[in-house]
Design a protein around this nucleic acid. Structure first.
Length: 115
DNA sequence: GAAATGACGCGTT
DNA sequence: GAACGCGCCATTT
């Protein structure tokens, strides 16, 4: 590939993920949309799967339903839950507590800091 | 070039 | 609320 071939899409997605504040979570499609690539939710997943970057908050990326993308028995699942809880995110049954206006555990910044 | 795969999303049942 | 099916995208076989 050309030396000048800058993966704009990938770079944009990674940037969007990095932009998620600590203690907050975002969805694949949401990240893709934020990166200017609507419908590329799957591309986000593929990137996280093969990025290998520890500095990237991949654990803050969940499905649109707020559920962990990994199967409940998978090691990745446990790792993600572990990391989220370490940041103060409430995870119950493999699902992240959505900012339902109830108990102000998480002020709101969660499901969409730009909302 | 077609078929299969995958850390997805949404509407229906 | 859970299970099922179809659509969408990019990479791999």
């Amino acid at each position: 590939m050309d030396a000048l071939s800058a993966d704009l899409p990938a770079a944009r997605i990674l940037a969007a993920i990095r932009d998620v504040p600590r203690g907050a979570v975002a969805g694949y499609g949401q990240i893709a949309r934020r990166a200017g690539l609507p419908g590329r939710a799957r591309m986000v997943a593929r990137l996280l799967a093969g990025n290998g970057d520890d500095t990237l908050p991949w654990h803050r990326i969940l499905r649109s339903d707020g559920r962990i993308a990994f199967p409940p028995d998978s090691p990745g699942f446990r790792e993600q839950v572990r990391r989220l809880r370490a940041e103060g995110v409430v995870v119950e049954k493999g699902r992240v507590r959505m900012p339902r206006g109830d108990a102000g555990d998480l002020d709101a910044a969660l499901w969409g800091p730009d909302a």
